[in-house]
């Protein structure tokens, strides 16, 4: 495992405490809570979850790699989600993804080396009227025209 930032075990233990020991059906929830707390799923967290819920590690790993919401790699400060829903697609979202590749050198699922941005592509976020739409952190950027996204990101609108 590549050396990432130090893992906040306290936060993880805090999350574990919210789920009863051995509650196997809470697995997906627990992993979601951990990711919310520490931004990704560090190996330590996956092990801790397996221990806590008394689920085989292999199964936890299978679940963590199956669901798209989970990231096993540390993610950037701002998670930029490019919607690739149908409307966004036909209104030019693939070009927005290319803009990231050209401008920041990151593809979907990748993080800039300064840990500033992580690019994620998501299926329809239900904001088709704003297509193509990009969600930067918590901000919706509407009607993203080709070649404009990086400027808008730095301006935050």
């Amino acid at each position: 495992m590549a050396a990432g930032p130090a893992v906040d075990m306290k936060a993880i233990e805090g999350v574990l405490g919210n789920h009863p020991r051995g509650a196997t059906d809470a697995l997906v929830h627990l992993l979601q809570d951990i990711q919310e707390a520490v931004n990704y799923l560090p190996e330590e967290a996956i092990r801790a979850a397996a221990d806590h819920l008394e689920v085989p590690l292999g199964k936890v790993y299978a679940v963590a790699t199956f669901y798209k919401a989970f990231s096993l790699k540390p993610r950037g400060k701002t998670i930029v989600k490019v919607c690739l829903g149908t409307t966004c697609h036909i209104r030019g979202a693939p070009v927005v993804v290319e803009d990231f590749q050209h401008g920041l050198g990151i593809g979907p699922g990748e993080t800039t080396s300064d840990m500033k941005y992580t690019l994620e592509v998501v299926n329809c976020v239900g904001a088709c009227a704003l297509a193509p739409v990009v969600i930067a952190g918590e901000k919706y950027l509407a009607d993203v025209k080709p070649g404009t996204i990086l400027k808008r990101l730095s301006k935050g609108k």
Binding site: L27, V28, L31, Y67, K68, F70
Partner: peptide, 19 residues
Amino acid sequence: GGGAFVCGESSALMRSIEG
């Protein structure tokens, strides 16, 4: 859900609820 389109399928959804 955990971000899986297939979980809209009922049997997959139930497996997902079961963890």
